[in-house]
Every structure is written in C-alpha cells, then in structure tokens.
Amino acid sequence: MKTQEELTEIVRDHFSDMGEIATLYVQVYESSLESLVGGVIFEDGRHYTFVYENEDLVYE
C-alpha cells in the first residue's frame, strides 16, 4: 500500500506533463489510505479537481 506522500507524487507527476503547477492540494478530510482527493492549479490559471484511487486518476 502506498503512503499519501507517494500518491501525491504520482498525481504531481501526471499533472506536470500538462504544464507548470502553481499549487497541488489534498483534501485530507475526503482522502484515505486508498484514495487521494484534491486539486491542482497551474501557473496559467487552469484548475482541476481530482480523485486518485486504485491506480486510476479521474479529474475535471
């Protein structure tokens, strides 16, 4: 089982391919040991929310 830090790094690596990240945040109250819920804001102003669970990243 991966730690929350490892899950965060996986998500950061994925989004870094889309541009320069200004902020990546995790909603700790919605996340667990198996899933990571949060959002990412890019330097150009784009903002996505995401759920990473079971090695699957869903964002909008």
Rank of each mutant, 00 (worst) to 15 (best):
F50S: 00
M18A: 04
G19T: 02
V51H: 11
E53H: 11
I21T: 02
I21F: 03
I10M: 10
T49L: 12
V51L: 09
D44W: 02
Y29R: 05
R46M: 05
I21V: 07
E34M: 12
Q27D: 11
D13Q: 13
V40E: 00
V40A: 03
Y25I: 06
V40W: 00
A22K: 15
D17N: 12
N54G: 10
E5R: 07
M1V: 12
T49Q: 08
Y25W: 08
L7T: 03
V51I: 14
T23M: 11
Y59N: 02
I21E: 01
G38Q: 02
L33V: 12
S31L: 08
G19F: 03
S31I: 07
E34K: 08
G45Q: 04
Y29V: 06
E6Y: 08
L33K: 14
V58S: 15
E9Q: 13
D17A: 14
L24T: 03
S16L: 10
E43P: 04
E53W: 13
I41T: 06
G38K: 00
F50N: 00
T3M: 05
F15S: 01
M1P: 12
V58N: 10
T3N: 08
Y52N: 00
V37F: 07
G19C: 03
E30F: 06
Y48I: 10
V37A: 08
Q4S: 06
E30K: 11
L7N: 03
K2P: 05
I41M: 09
T3Y: 04
D56I: 15
V37L: 08
V26F: 06
L33W: 10
E55S: 11
L24E: 00
Q4T: 06
N54W: 07
E9K: 14
V28K: 14
S32M: 14
S16M: 11
V37I: 12
V40G: 00
L57I: 10
D44S: 04
E34I: 11
V28C: 10
F50V: 01
L36N: 00
E60F: 11
L33S: 12
V51M: 10
Y48C: 04
S32K: 10
L57Y: 03
M1G: 12
E20W: 08
R46F: 04
L7F: 04
T23P: 01
M1R: 10
L24I: 12
Y52I: 06
E43F: 11
M1I: 13
F50P: 00
S32R: 05
F50C: 02
L57D: 01
T3G: 07
S16G: 08
V28Y: 13
I10V: 08
S16T: 10
E53Y: 11
K2G: 05
V11N: 02
R12I: 08
D13S: 15
G19R: 02
Y48T: 01
E43C: 12
S32F: 09
T8A: 09
T49P: 03
D44I: 02
G39I: 13
E55F: 11
S31E: 13
T49C: 08
D17G: 14
E9R: 14
Y25L: 04
R46P: 03
F15A: 02
V26R: 01
R12M: 09
V26P: 01
D17R: 14
L33R: 14
L33H: 13
L36R: 00
G39S: 09
A22H: 11
N54R: 10
L7D: 01
T3I: 04
E9F: 10
S32N: 11
E53L: 15
D44L: 02
E20N: 15
V28W: 13
M18Q: 06
G19D: 02
V26E: 02
Q27E: 11
R46A: 07
M18K: 07
T49R: 10
L7A: 04
I21D: 01
F15I: 03
E34Y: 08
Q27R: 09
G45E: 03
S16N: 10
D56M: 15
E55V: 06
E20F: 11
D56C: 12
I10L: 11
S32G: 10
Q27Y: 11
A22C: 14
Y52V: 05
E5C: 12
Y52L: 09
D44A: 01
T8E: 14
D17S: 14
F15D: 01
E53F: 13
V26N: 02
Y52Q: 02
L33T: 13
L33Y: 11
M18H: 08
V37M: 13
V51G: 03
Y25P: 00
R12K: 10
L24N: 00
S32H: 12
Y52T: 02
Y25G: 01
S16H: 08
Q4Y: 11
E60V: 14
T8R: 09
T49Y: 09
H47T: 05
L33P: 12
D56G: 13
F15P: 01
Y48F: 12
E55L: 09
F42Q: 00
S31N: 09
E34W: 07
V40Y: 01
L57V: 07
L24R: 00
V11R: 01
D17Y: 14
M18Y: 08
Q4R: 11
M18C: 07
Y52R: 01
Y48Q: 01
V28S: 12
S35P: 04
Y25C: 06
E34H: 09
Q27F: 10
D44K: 01
V26C: 05
G45C: 05
S35Y: 15
E53K: 14
Y59W: 11
K2V: 05
F42W: 03
I21L: 06
Y29K: 05
Y59V: 10
G39E: 13
I21N: 02
R12C: 06
S35N: 07
E34N: 15
D44V: 02
E6F: 08
M18V: 05
N54Y: 08
H47E: 08
S35A: 07
V11A: 04
G45S: 04
V40R: 00
E43H: 14
Y29G: 07
I41S: 04
D17T: 15
D17C: 14
V11L: 07
V11S: 01
E5K: 08
T8L: 13
E60W: 15
Q4G: 04
E53T: 10
G39V: 12
D17W: 13
N54H: 11
S35K: 15
D13L: 14
D44G: 04
Y25V: 05
I10Q: 08
S35H: 12
E34C: 08
L7Q: 04
K2R: 10
L7C: 04
Y52M: 05
E43M: 15
V28H: 14
E43A: 15
D13E: 12
E20R: 14
E5P: 06
L24D: 00
